[in-house]
């Protein structure tokens, strides 16, 4: 810190930016590694569908699988680009076994609601870490 920076107003810290970027990144990292093998493919399909209507990039779609009690919840978080009056985020929750989405879902048709029971056990998730969730 020299004589000039003493008189300059304090700059907005870059640490806040670092934290924001990391929150998004780590959420993605967990989504990629914790989920079943088809999750990346499912994510790609969803992205392709949305791309038909809106111009969005890969990092604007977050697909995440959470366990709550005895049901698994697939959380879709899609950030739409700002354009005028449109609200900036759509938070859509879909079910992991919904038979319209996902390449491997044909075996299970009972579920159409936002949350239903799914008995598939997840791979040894010893993790007690809380997952950093990032909403747009």
């Amino acid at each position: 810190m020299g004589i000039f920076s003493f008189f300059r107003s304090k700059p907005k810290g870059s640490a806040a930016t670092a934290k924001e970027r990391l929150q998004v990144l780590i959420a993605h990292q967990h989504a990629d590694s914790d989920g079943p093998d088809y999750l990346p493919l499912l994510k790609q399909d969803i992205l392709n569908v949305i791309k038909k209507y809106v111009d969005i990039g890969e990092e604007q779609v977050l697909v995440q699988l959470d366990s709550q009690d005895d049901c698994d919840v697939l959380e879709l978080n899609i950030t739409l680009p700002e354009d005028g009056e449109r609200s900036s985020a759509v938070d859509a929750k879909a079910l992991r076994d919904n038979d319209d989405d996902g390449p491997q879902s044909s075996k299970n048709r009972q579920s159409r609601a936002e949350r239903t029971r799914s008995r598939q056990t997840r791979k040894s998730q010893a993790s007690a870490r809380s997952q950093a969730k990032q909403k747009a």
Binding site: K10, P11, K12, G13, S14, A15, A16, A18, K19, L22, Q23, I26, R129, S130, Q131, A132
Partner: peptide, 19 residues
């Protein structure tokens, strides 16, 4: 540097890594 907002704070990191 944390006070100046240039470096992630302890709380930030604990928050992010959750351990």
């Amino acid at each position: 540097r944390v006070r100046e907002g240039q470096m992630l704070s302890v709380d930030d990191i604990v928050d992010l890594l959750a351990i």
